[in-house]
Every structure is written in C-alpha cells, then in structure tokens.
Design a protein around this nucleic acid. Structure first.
Length: 507
RNA sequence: GGCGCUAUCGUCUAUCGGCUAGGACGAGAGAUUUUCAUUCUCUAAAGCGGGGUUCGAUUCCCCGUGGCGCUACCA
C-alpha cells in the first residue's frame, strides 16, 4: 500500500506486570518490525493517573530484556519522536484537543460522574450520542455564556468527540478484512478530562501514533470495537492519508472454562501468566513468573508465537531469526486461542534438549551450589549429558541427579522390595570384591568383564545389577550403571556399595 | 440488552473448491533397556446445525447456535 517506513509500537499502560497476552502482542510487533527492517517503539500510556503502579514500567522493560525482544526507540531507549511517556505530553494533547474543539468536531461537557450514573440508572441503554447529547449539560445544549461561566467557576469538564450519526465506518483490518460499523452505535467518547489535564487513551493514542509516524497498529482484539472511533478521529484531524494499517490479534483464552486468560488463572492452574515474578507493591501479593519457574525465554517466545500464528508448514521449533523470516500477519488466526501450558512445558523440554550440555551445566552449577555441592563445570556437564533428556526444567536436574553428587542416605522402599531380595547382599558383596581386585575400572572395559563374571556365576544380570544400582543410587532409577560408576570413581563406588551393605543388613 | 469478531481432533493448528481431512501437544498401546526415564513405532481422536451457490463444499454466501470481546471521565 504505502511505501513509507514500517514503524510499529508496543504501548502498555504501567498498571501492573506485563500479561503474557501483552507479550505475544509485543512479539508480533517485534517480528513484523524486524522483518521489514522497521522501527519498534516503546511507548508508555499512563494517561490514567489513578491506575499508575510504581515499578510496572521497570518490570516491563526487564521482561522484554529477558525475552530477547528489543526496541529501537521509546521510553529508556531514546529517539527523535519523544517524549514517549504520555504523561509528559500534556501540552501536545491540549493543542490537538483545541484543534478539534475549534473545528466543531468535539465539545465540552459538564455532566458529573454522578449525573451520568443517574442517567444510566433511569435509562439502562443510555448512550451519550447524537440522540441524547442535547439533553445533557454541554457546550451544545448550553449557551456560550453559560459555558464560559461554568469554566470560570472552576467546574470540571470533559471534552467529548462529536460522532456524526448515520455513517458506515470502515476499518480495514489486515487479519479480518473490511469491518463496517454504523456510527449510530458509537458514543461521544471522552477525549480529555480537565481534572487531571490528561487525554483519554483514544485521543492520546491517535495523536501519538500520528506524530510518531506509526505505520501499522498491531494490537489485541479487545480494541476492535473502538477501531471505528479511531478511524473517525484520524478523519477529524485530517490524517486519513497517513492512517496506520490495523491488525487485531485473536485473544488468549483460559486453558479451561470460559473467558480470556486472566491474571488469576495462572497460579490457580499451576502456570505463570507473567514473564517475570511480580511483587505487588500494594498488597504484597506475589505472582509467579516464567523466568523464576525455570522456563527458557526462547521456549516461551516460541510457544507464544504459535498461539495465533503458524508458518504454514509443520515446523514448530523455531529460533527468533526463523520467526522474523517467516512471520506473516495474513497467517494469523482469527479465533481466540486457549493457552495450553502442557505444550509450553514441552517446548521447554525441547529447548533444553537442543541446548549445549555445557550451557545447561552453566545454569545447573548455581543450583548445585545451593544444595551445598561444589563441583567442576566438567563434571556438571557430564551429568547434564546423561540426564537432561529426562527433565522439563533445568531445576529438575537436581531431583533427578542429586545422587551423582551425594551418596544416598535412605533407600527407596519399593526398589528394595523389588531388588533387595535374600541374595542381593551376597551379589553386591561379591561384586565389590570383584571390582576391587579388577585391574581396570573404566566402564567401557569393566562392563564386559562384569558381564562375563556374572555369567560364569550363573546369576541373573538384572538381579545383580539392580541390587548394585540400589546401593549406589538409593533407588531403582538412573542412567546406565557403568556411566554412574565412571562418574563416581572406584573409591566412591565401593564405599557406597559397602555402606549400603552395612545399613541394609539390620533389616 | 446492543454492537462487533469468531467456529476443523480434548488443546494449538494445516487445508486458500476435489479429502483416504495432515502435523504437534496431551492420551492410550507396543518396542528397546540390567532400573527409571529418554527415544522410537503404532492407535484412538475433528469439519456446530440448517439452507443456498456449484459437477463438487471443511473451504464461498445467508440464517441459527455456541464461544469471545466491547459497551467507563480504564487502557
């Protein structure tokens, strides 16, 4: 359509932690910007002074940093279209509100919240529009003198957009096509409030997108109903020719039940809805985050990208670069997507599997340290190579592999019942003697020797080896036994086996 | 209530009028293994209903139904 430079934005309001749905919206904007070598702008929409939450802005920035989603300009990034925080743009908005007022496209209204509430109580379907505006207290129903007097008195007022009735408003949406809504169902939205001298979302959004030369507005479907209003605003300002293209993304739905994914669902169903852990400054409530739960940012991003979009083939595991290359708004689905956290976990498993053992080990080292284990990166890497296939989270490595580093203190009852039968102590005792006397210990050479030795005794391999395993691990779990003995070394192997013989004798 | 969006396996989705409806997660079964996992193989599992258009509809149109969203001096 237009040849102008692609410029998109993500514009959260700092009212709390960034929701996972917001992350997905930001991700699509990011992919779109990168694919078109465009700019990605980070704007803060803090026009509701009552809902400001300290720390939210910093949280959002930190979350994107963790996720690997980067911006080119905006709050904390700089740029030549600033300021990027709406609360710092008061004077700009005032100017544009005046413009609308002077052009007769907006008017001043004095109705108090209480009056409006009363009106709605008596008329359940009340809407502030062409049919009702003359019944209200505003600059259309009052005389110029009355209006001036009220303002002089210090009466609080709002500026409302004058919506012309009987018009079909077209919103061209890149995902949904042409959406037509009659202006009759639109109300005269409040654009500006004198109380805090700030505009509402609608006005600020249009003014900023225009001034910041935003080319594409990619946002959640919850904005679709107000898109016609936005189109009308562009028209009122005379900016139709540079109006951005719209794309309204399907919403993220709860994994079960009805409705869209909400903040509460997360901890109720056992998965986070926030990228990072969030400590509510007011209530002190803590909400879990993907980072703290041990998810890899690449896995989170990959999973989220596929909720509402797909590359058109069977490829699911994709790097950010892959996605930048493949992303396509026309391949976005239209219906809401249920959040499937089991698949999210699978993605995490997949990403751990694809990571270098040494990289996983690097993340595993601090966990080992927490449990009082001092070891080398080499040894940690060895354990990772043996065990990473069986975990979904790096943290799980400890519960799955602690016995590599610590001798068992207790022995699993079920395993004992199955493998620690009458002859087990004899097997283990004799095996210890055999291993002790054997000139070599490394698994590759030792294993065939042990097998041959067991065969010569005419014992069952399973019976001997599993009894042995229980003494080393404490349960009938773990990797190939000679991998473990290699890791433990001869001394520790024998020490564990003989200690078990002592401990288990009493029973 | 009004307005809008939407509708394929339990879930995420492919199909852009020709289908024996494909893939993935999850589920189930089996194989491998000295244990537990991993891995591998296989199986079950879907076009909301009714009208059109068409030689032919999952695909296009309409109606109904379900789901979702919006309906604030919140974003």
């Amino acid at each position: 359509m237009s040849e102008r430079k692609v410029r998109v934005r993500f514009a959260p309001s700092p009212t709390g932690p960034l929701h996972i749905g917001g992350v997905r919206t930001a991700l699509y904007n990011y992919l779109f910007a990168r694919q078109h070598s465009g700019d990605f702008v980070f704007r803060i929409e803090d026009t509701d002074s009552n809902r400001f939450v300290p720390g939210a802005e910093e949280y959002i920035l930190e979350a994107f940093q963790w996720l690997g989603i980067t911006f080119d300009e905006g709050v904390s990034f700089g740029g030549s279209y600033g300021p990027y925080r709406q609360s710092e743009r008061r004077e700009i908005y005032k100017q544009y509100v005046q413009q609308l007022l002077q052009a007769g496209k907006a008017y001043i209204a004095f109705d108090t919240p209480a009056e409006l509430e009363a009106k709605r109580a008596e008329q359940p379907n009340f809407q502030y529009d062409a049919r009702t505006r003359l019944e209200m207290r505003n600059s259309l129903s009052l005389t110029k003198e009355q209006v001036e007097a009220l303002i002089a008195e210090g009466c609080q007022y709002v500026v409302r957009f004058l919506v012309e009735p009987h018009r079909d408003v077209h919103v061209h949406d890149l995902i949904r096509g042409d959406v037509v809504i009659s202006s009759d169902v639109l109300d005269d939205k409040v654009l500006y409030k004198s109380a805090d001298e700030l505009p509402t979302y609608h006005l600020a959004n249009i003014v900023d997108d225009h001034l910041m030369e935003i080319s594409h507005v990619i946002r959640g479907e919850e904005w679709l109903p107000s898109a016609p209003l936005h189109v009308l605003l562009y028209e009122a300002f005379g900016w139709t020719d540079t109006m951005p293209c719209f794309a309204h993304l399907p919403l993220l739905l709860k994994p079960e039940g009805n409705g869209k994914l909400s903040k509460r669902d997360g901890d109720r169903l056992g998965f986070p809805v926030f990228p990072l852990e969030w400590h509510d400054p007011k209530t002190g409530e803590v909400s879990s985050g993907y980072r703290e739960k041990g998810y890899l940012p690449e896995a989170v991003v990959n999973f989220l990208a596929l909720l509402g979009w797909n590359p058109g083939n069977d490829q699911e595991v994709m790097s950010m670069d892959d996605m930048v290359r493949l992303f396509d708004l026309s391949r976005c689905s239209k219906a809401g997507a249920r959040f499937d956290y089991k698949k999210m976990i699978w993605f995490n498993h997949e990403y751990i599997l694809n990571m270098d053992d040494s990289a996983v080990a690097e993340a595993f080292m601090p966990i080992l340290k927490e449990h009082g284990v001092e070891t080398t990166p080499e040894r940690a890497t060895k354990v990772v190579s043996l065990m990473k296939g069986r975990v979904n989270f790096i943290e799980e490595l400890w519960e799955q592999a602690s016995y590599f580093f610590e001798a068992p203190e207790a022995y699993d009852e079920k395993s004992l019942k199955k493998w620690w039968k009458e002859e087990a102590p004899m097997y283990v005792s004799e095996l210890c003697d055999f291993i002790e006397k054997n000139p070599v210990f490394n698994g590759a050479e030792l294993e065939p020797m042990v097998m041959e030795w067991i065969a010569s005794k005419e014992w069952g391999v399973g019976k001997v080896m599993n009894a042995f395993r229980v003494t080393l691990v404490g349960a009938a779990v773990g990797p190939h036994i000679f991998e473990l003995t290699d890791f433990l070394g001869k001394e520790e192997t024998l020490r564990r086996a003989r200690r078990a013989l002592e401990v288990l004798k009493v029973e």
